[in-house]
Simulated assay, not measured.
Amino acid sequence: MSARRQRVGAYALSIDEAGGVLLCRMSRRSRTPGTLTLPGGGVRHGEDPGDAVLRELAEETGLTGRVEALLGVHANVYDSDGVSIHGVRLLYQVTIVGGTLRAEQGDASTDGATWVAPEDLGGVTLSAHARHALELLAAASAGTSRS
């Protein structure tokens, strides 16, 4: 049996006034280089997930935000260097309130941050939790419920 661990993360879904989605590009240091994902990452021991999502947003994009709502949860199991990881991702709707957009600094898991127009989303490779967050937002906007 391979080693197992659980990882809890918090991720920000931010939409601009034109409907663009704030996304980060996974670096070659990550498992999925080139994939676009939501800004976010691991919740530190003892850290409130709402604080974690805002910390990660600032680290990965240079932007500051305000949590509006918890959209839902995305979970899956994946392998990383022979370790079975149970990833649990809390997906937050976040409004951007300040800062200047930039890429994450240093040797990081992401190497770019950008706003992607709604009409361009179909032509990019999105992480599973980014797709799930967009589906949750669409369902909430349509007045339906999904988890």
Rank of each mutant, 00 (worst) to 15 (best):
A3L: 12
S84F: 03
T95H: 15
A103L: 04
R28N: 05
T114E: 08
T61H: 09
A75S: 13
D107I: 03
L91F: 06
S127C: 02
A58M: 10
T100N: 14
I85S: 02
E135I: 02
M26G: 01
L91T: 08
A69V: 05
Q93D: 14
G50K: 13
D81K: 02
R28W: 00
V124H: 11
S30M: 01
L134Q: 12
A108R: 07
G99S: 12
G112C: 01
M1V: 01
T110W: 08
G72T: 02
T114D: 06
E56K: 12
N76W: 06
V43Q: 05
G9D: 07
R7G: 00
G112M: 00
V21L: 09
D81Q: 06
R102F: 10
D16H: 10
T64R: 15
S14G: 06
L54A: 07
E56M: 07
S141D: 14
G50N: 13
A58V: 07
L63S: 06
G99M: 09
H86L: 01
R44W: 04
L36G: 01
A3P: 05
R4V: 02
G34W: 01
R44F: 01
L137R: 15
T95G: 15
S30I: 00
V97E: 14
D107F: 03
I96C: 10
R131L: 04
G123I: 03
T114K: 07
A140Q: 14
R44K: 12
S127H: 01
V43W: 06
T35F: 00
Q93A: 15
I96M: 11
Y92G: 03
V21H: 10
S2N: 03
G123L: 03
M1I: 00
E17M: 10
D16E: 09
A108S: 13
R5Y: 01
G106F: 10
D81G: 01
S147T: 07
C24S: 06
A113N: 06
G46M: 12
V73E: 15
A18V: 09
G72W: 11
Q105R: 12
T125K: 14
R29Q: 04
L136C: 14
L91N: 09
T144Y: 10
E60V: 02
E59L: 14
M1E: 08
G122Q: 11
P33F: 00
R89E: 03
G62H: 07
S80D: 02
G50F: 02
A128K: 10
A10G: 13
E60Y: 05
L36W: 02
L134E: 12
E68T: 13
L57M: 11
A108Y: 07
G19C: 06
A139Y: 03
A133M: 13
H74D: 07
G72S: 11
H74C: 04
R66M: 13
D111I: 01
L91D: 10
H74W: 14
